[in-house]
Design a protein around this nucleic acid. Structure first.
Length: 318
DNA sequence: CACTTGACCTGTCCGC
DNA sequence: TGCGGACAGGTCAAGT
C-alpha cells in the first residue's frame, strides 16, 4: 500500500514522537513479520533509546542508541500507529458515553443521521488496538506504544546493526530518491535505459530505476505527462520524458502535503487517513471525466496492475 | 540478460 | 445469505 508519500508522512510523524523514548518491552506474533528477530530479541531492544527516524525508498529506519536499527517495510497493508494508553482509554470512554447518549436521548429506531457519534473515522480503531492485524508492539518507558499492524502479512520489520543497512540487497539495488537534488533528468534517462523494452509504467514501478513510486503515483505521473502507460520506454520521446521527470517529484510533494493516499488501510503515525486520493486526476477515476479534456477515464491492466488512463490525453503514439 | 508472471496473505466486493 | 472468483497500493523468485 504505502508508496513514498505515505511512508514519508509516517516518518514525519514518528520523527516528532519517538526520538529520546526508551523501549521497555517488545511483543511480536507472526514470525514472518519479524523474520530475523533473535530469540533474545528483548535483550537487544529493551533499554534502547530511539535516536532518529529515517526513510529510504519505501523503507522506514528507526535508529537506536545501541547501534542497531529497526527497518520496516509496510508493503501493501502495513501501518505504524503510535498511541498512549490514555488516548486509548479516552476513545473507549467516549464510545461508551456516546452509546449511552444515543439510548437515553433518542427515540428508538431513529435514523443514523439523528444519532450522536461519528467523529474521526479512525478514532475507534485507536481504541481497539491491538487488533488481529497487529504483528509487533513496541512499548516505551512512558507507557506509549507503537503498533505495527499488517492485515496481509506481506510487510516486515527487522533488526540490523545500523552500519549494515546499506549492505542489504534492497538498499544496494534501489534507485535514486526522486525528491533529492541528485535526481536529475540525466540520471532519470540513464536509469531508464536498463528497461528500454518494457512499458514505461513497468519501468516506473521498478525500484531500481527510481525509489518510491508505486501504482498510484505511477498512474498520476503518467497522466500528468500525457504518456500512455504501455508505451515501451525506448519509444517515449525525450520531451515526454522531461515532462515525466518534472511530474514525478511534483506529484509526490503534493501527496506528502495531503498526508498521502488512503484507499482502505493506510494510516499515518497518529492513525489519521491521507487525503491525496481526493486530488487524484486519474487513479481510481474510471468512469469520471478527465479534468483536462473531459474524456471518460478508463481502467486497463498494465504490468499486472490496475491502471488508469485518459484515452485522449495519453495516446498510444509518441 | 531483459522482461513478465506467480506467489506471498487476508479481506472485500461483485455476480450468480 | 451464501459461495466462488477477481482484485487490492509491493517485492521477490522463478519462469520465458
Amino acid at each position: 500500500m504505502p508508496e513514498l508519500p505515505e511512508v514519508e508522512t509516517i516518518r514525519i510523524g514518528l520523527a516528532k514522537l519517538l526520538p529520546g523514548l526508551e523501549i521497555k518491552d517488545v511483543w511480536h506474533d507472526w514470525t514472518k513479520s519479524f523474520p530475523n528477530a533473535p530469540a533474545d530479541v528483548k535483550n537487544f531492544l529493551i533499554g534502547a533509546k530511539v535516536k532518529e527516524v529515517r526513510r529510504r525508498a519505501k523503507v522506514l529506519i528507526i535508529d537506536l542508541s545501541t547501534k542497531y536499527s529497526l527497518i520496516i517495510h509496510l508493503k501493501m497493508t502495513g501501518q505504524l500507529v503510535f498511541v498512549s494508553k490514555n488516548q486509548q482509554k479516552l476513545e473507549t470512554r467516549k464510545k461508551k458515553l456516546v452509546k449511552k447518549a444515543n439510548s437515553q436521548f433518542l427515540i428508538p429506531n431513529s435514523s443514523e443521521a439523528g444519532r450522536f457519534g461519528g467523529g474521526h473515522p479512525t478514532d475507534s480503531l485507536i481504541g481497539k488496538l491491538p487488533d488481529k492485524s497487529t504483528r509487533v508492539i513496541l512499548t516505551f518507558k512512558d507507557g506509549r506504544r507503537l503498533f505495527f499492524n499488517d492485515q496481509r502479512k506481506f510487510g516486515w520489520m527487522r533488526l540490523l546493526p545500523t552500519l549494515e543497512i546499506p549492505e542489504i540487497d534492497f538498499m544496494k539495488k534501489v534507485g535514486p530518491e526522486p525528491l533529492e537534488d541528485d535526481f536529475t533528468l540525466k540520471v532519470f534517462v540513464e536509469r531508464l535505459k536498463r528497461r528500454q523494452n518494457s512499458s514505461i509504467k513497468a519501468a516506473l514501478l521498478d525500484q531500481s530505476v527510481l525509489a518510491g513510486v508505486g501504482n498510484i503515483y505511477a498512474d498520476e505521473s503518467l497522466w500528468a505527462a500525457k504518456i500512455h502507460p504501455t508505451i515501451p520506454v525506448k519509444q517515449v520521446s525525450r520531451s515526454k520524458l522531461a515532462n515525466l521527470y518534472e511530474a514525478i517529484p511534483t506529484i509526490l510533494c503534493l501527496a506528502i502535503e495531503a498526508g498521502g493516499s488512503t484507499d482502505r488501510n493506510y494510516l499515518d503515525a497518529q492513525g489519521k487517513k491521507g487525503s491525496y486520493l481526493s486530488l487524484a486526476k486519474a487513479f481510481r477515476k474510471e468512469g469520471v471525466p478527465c479534468p483536462r479534456c473531459g474524456t471518460i477515464i478508463e481502467k486497463i491492466r498494465v504490468a499486472g496492475r490496475g491502471t488508469h488512463i485518459c484515452p485522449k490525453c495519453q495516446k498510444l503514439t509518441k
